[in-house]
Design a protein around this nucleic acid. Structure first.
Length: 327
RNA sequence: GGUCGGGUAGCUCAGUUGGUAGAGCAGCGGACUGAAAAUCCGCGUGCCGGCAGUUCAAGUCUGCCUCCGACCA
């Protein structure tokens, strides 16, 4: 993490990142853009799905022709390519430095809590990969561990971790095989999950930040989510998915995870009606919003704003808070 | 008008030979450090349609009433 400290440069309020966070469909992009216009800023997306090219409608990217400020960390890889929090951490920090170097204000905006923390905090994600070869062996190792988990079954796989590294195992639920896999990876890297977890709550800032959160009553949020999903479909989400399929990304790791994409595959293959898929997408998005809230709610640094307010009012509330923070 | 089904959690339904009810989904809460839009965990009192009867004991049996559905007139 030392690599990312800016050394002698004193941290001044002017150098703080402004972060806009909260659940989906709450108006983060609009607020971030309004603030960017006011503050001579540029936007760094903190969204795990907007990094993928060609996934536009379903990830609610602001359309190119509507963007009034520069965006970063959007469209950085193809849907078939591997991407993760470590790569995001680097990309976001490069973007911050670049924006500051041009005398502008970075605004981090997005709903992927892990990415927000990875960008701003002293967030160790393990050893660096060295070149493309390291990348290959890393995913090979992971596949190996997954195969082992598959073969042994979740209980026995977990028991193996409990044997090798009881402290880490104690922090992970036996059913959470994905975390168990990662715990083995930490061991192979000469550390351990438990060792890392000790610092999880520290919130050591690498980049000082001011956090703005957007939220609204649950019922309204869900109404907005449902409407937005409907709108995405009307704006051609189905075509977007079939285009990704045509380009061979149907089995891409990411496309299979993205809400709004995975649910439309059975529609294209004729196994499900569009109507049914839409309600599945709405459902999944509501669940997602809940998970986002439970991530952000426990972060006491966030200053929450009422997302129901019209944009001008919301913006001036945000600006008032920011100036109170910066003196 | 008659016959047969059915009325149990917000929804779909289970409920064994009578012992005062439980699944899935929805909803709510939580965790989270290299897949994170992922992955995982926790939370189930509801006049069992109503009234009466049989019984020590009724969601469960009987009668009447009521509502929904199908069929017969």
């Amino acid at each position: 993490s030392g690599a990312y400290n800016r050394g002698k440069n004193m941290v001044s309020p002017r150098r703080a990142v402004i972060a806009v966070v909260g659940p989906t469909a709450t108006g983060k992009s609009a607020l971030a853009e309004a603030l960017a216009l006011q503050l001579n800023g540029e936007i760094v997306s903190a969204d795990s799905m907007q990094v993928y090219k060609g996934m536009d409608i379903g990830t609610a990217k602001v359309p190119l022709h509507e963007r009034r400020v520069a965006y970063h960390c959007i469209d950085v890889v193809a849907p078939g390519e591997e991407f993760n929090a470590a790569l995001y951490q680097k990309a976001a920090r490069v973007a911050f430095e670049d924006i500051w170097a041009r005398g502008k204000q970075p605004l981090l905006c997005g709903g992927t809590g892990l990415y927000v923390r990875a960008a701003l905090e002293d967030f160790s994600l393990g050893q660096d990969d060295e070149g493309a070869d390291a990348q290959v062996t890393r995913s090979e190792r992971r596949r190996c561990l997954e195969a082992e988990a598959q073969e042994l079954g979740p209980e026995a796989f977990y028991a193996r971790l409990a044997d090798l590294d009881p402290e880490s195992a104690a922090l992970i639920h036996p059913n959470n095989t994905r975390r168990v896999v990662r715990a083995f990876e930490w061991l192979e890297e000469g550390s351990s999950y438990a060792e890392q977890a000790a610092g999880f709550d520290a919130h050591n800032e690498v980049y000082p930040a001011v956090y703005l959160g957007l939220d609204m009553p649950r019922e309204l949020l869900y109404t907005r989510i449902n409407a937005r999903v409907q709108q995405m479909v009307e704006h051609g989400l189905l075509d977007e998915v079939s285009e990704l399929l045509r380009r061979g990304y149907g089995h891409a790791l990411t496309a299979q995870q993205a809400i709004g994409y995975k649910e439309l595959l059975p529609v294209l293959s004729g196994d499900e009606t569009l109507e049914a898929a839409v309600s599945h997408i709405q459902q999944a998005t509501r669940h997602y919003a809940k998970r986002q809230l439970s991530w952000f709610r426990r972060d006491k640094r966030i200053h929450w704003l009422d997302a129901r307010l019209p944009l001008p009012e919301l913006t001036s509330d945000a600006l008032a808070f920011l100036s109170s923070m910066c003196g």
